[in-house]
Design a protein around this nucleic acid. Structure first.
Lengths: 158, 158
DNA sequence: TATTGTTATACTCTATAACTATA
DNA sequence: TATAGTTATAGAGTATAACAATA
């Protein structure tokens, strides 16, 4: 028999059709993260920043003088893929590649005043967006979520 | 002054250089998820399945008769991008595109016996891997993490 | 020899438009 | 006209190898 009978493909409102995957914490994390990422991208679009550019800029502002290799490690991306991100931020005058006296291979990444100001504004905006998005959780839940996620990362990260 | 002095680029062990982003729950989620995804992919590689292929197969097994559009919605991917995934699973004899009598545009996705068996084995393996990966958390923490993530998704998802 | 930044490249993922066959 | 599956394609994102300059 090649065809499917009526009752087999019942119109059954497919709500929660992914419940067969809901046993996996990873799946729950992925679906939740995709909501957060969309909101985050919306918040940063006002400043013409992608999530990764914002992350790079924030770290450079918070820890000036890092080299590109160190920043790539911190962001867990490849050195080679960081180049265009740094190009973009430098091209907008938000950071500079400063030469390092002792080792002319390296670039010390330094924020400009404009970069510091944009980072502060973007960070405030992103934080406000996130706060609003997570308003459906209690303070205790948000704190617990953060704590558990950090604990997990700390105890599993290579 | 163009160069950076010695003390400015102190060799400061860059542990936790991303702490400037740690205020964001989304960042914590992303870093945790990347650990889970790597482990998940390792578990499924024994069965030559990618995460998305496993997810598709699992849903087809759990909810036979879904159409491709319904499955794409459940997985939150584009219909067009589901085609090659279905091609792959069907090519391996794990599922079939069964014709639907009432509407010859649609395909009812049905698992084969081989598909059901592979899905069961892969699911058990993935669950074991995840259980081992999350062993660093208490039962209460795992339960709470799942609960909070689901609550968040339920209350924010469009 | 090894490392830093860079380029080139390839492979995956994702998103969009347009086509066909059906309805 | 609208919908289901499909094709083609373009844009991100990601990973690897190799090169020039420097250590």
């Amino acid at each position: 028999m090649d065809t499917i009978a009526d009752q087999d493909i019942a119109i059954s409102a497919p709500q929660e059709t992914d419940r067969h995957l809901s046993g996996f914490i990873g799946y729950a994390m992925k679906r939740a993260l995709s909501i957060v990422q969309a909101d985050f991208a919306r918040a940063l679009s006002d400043y013409d920043l992608r999530a990764v550019s914002f992350s790079a800029l924030s770290i450079i502002v918070g820890e000036p003088g890092l080299t590109q290799t160190q920043l790539a490690d911190a962001l867990q991306i490849e050195r080679s893929n960081l180049v265009t991100i740094i190009d973009e931020l430098a091209g907008r005058g938000l950071i500079v590649r400063a030469p390092v006296a002792q080792d002319r291979r390296r670039h010390a990444l330094m924020p400009t005043t404009a970069g510091q100001q944009l980072a502060a504004k973007a960070k405030a905006s992103a934080a406000a967006h996130e706060s609003s998005l997570f308003a459906c959780l209690t303070e205790a839940e948000k704190t617990e979520l953060q704590r558990i996620l950090r604990k997990f990362r700390k105890l599993t990260a290579g």
